[in-house]
């Protein structure tokens, strides 16, 4: 198996404060990975670094063998929260914006995902509920044709039906060789779609394990395993 994401000796400081320390992480082609950790553990920063959106880190991040920022941006689709848009903009305008900015954005694909998630493009950004906005973010993110999709906490504060729909759309539209990284601080809903979990604790990668291995080795759910790590009951000892 080839690695789509290769991170070595990555350290990131911001305003003299350490955010990530000595991150080494390989993610194989085709995997769906849960990036787990408390709020403030560094999940979003790590994703932004992978996406080439944050700068100034030491160490290397290679995506599909590419090291340059521009090359990485072209093969990574990150779930931007659309904060840069005027709140009164209509959804259809955001879609044309994506089409203009990303040559790999497929309107055809967007329409399929949007139809499945029942997104109403006539609305203005400010009129969207939390769940609807999250669906839009997912629709836009998955409609690019890239090697890596980074979904940063896509389930925050939304109802369980929307959550299920979003999870199904991830399964439905994931290309076989694409990598999907989903970050979250609670896992029970997504655990069934994960190949692996990567747990960040105290600014470092605490562990990277196959989800099925956690189930068979510890007879534990992913949620339980994750909690036991944060509560300090190290199962590896």
């Amino acid at each position: 198996m080839t690695n789509t994401i290769e991170i070595s000796n990555l350290t990131y400081h911001k305003n003299y404060k350490s955010i990530l320390e000595d991150i080494n992480l390989n993610i194989e082609q085709g995997k769906t990975v849960g990036l787990l950790g408390e709020n403030g553990a560094g999940k979003t920063t790590l994703m932004r670094l992978i996406a080439g959106l944050a700068k100034g880190a030491h160490g290397t991040i290679k995506i599909a063998g590419q090291d340059a920022v521009a090359a990485k941006k072209a093969v990574v689709s990150f779930s931007e929260q659309l904060d840069g848009f005027n709140p009164s903009i209509r959804i259809e305008k955001i879609i044309s914006f994506y089409e203009d900015v990303y040559p790999d954005f497929s309107v055809d694909r967007y329409n399929q995902v949007a139809g499945f998630l029942q997104i109403d493009e006539g609305l203005r950004l400010s009129a969207l509920s939390k769940g609807m906005k999250e669906k839009l973010v997912i629709g836009l993110t998955l409609s690019r044709d890239t090697k890596v999709y980074l979904l940063d906490e896509p389930f925050g504060g939304i109802d369980s039906m929307s959550r299920k729909k979003i999870i199904q759309s991830i399964i439905k539209w994931k290309a076989p060789d694409a990598v999907i990284v989903v970050s979250d601080h609670y896992v029970s809903e997504i655990s069934s779609i994960l190949d692996e979990v990567v747990i960040i604790k105290d600014r470092r990668i605490y562990t990277q394990k196959s989800a099925e291995e956690i189930r068979s080795q510890y007879a534990e759910g992913i949620e339980q395993y994750y909690e036991s790590i944060y509560e300090g009951n190290d199962m590896d000892d």
């Binding site: 085709g30 999870i167 199904q168 399964i171 076989p176 779609i193 190949d195």
Partner: peptide
Amino acid sequence: VRQLAVDLTVNVNT
């Protein structure tokens, strides 16, 4: 495979 994965809400590889 993919349809089963969507129906059961599980990973395609699984």
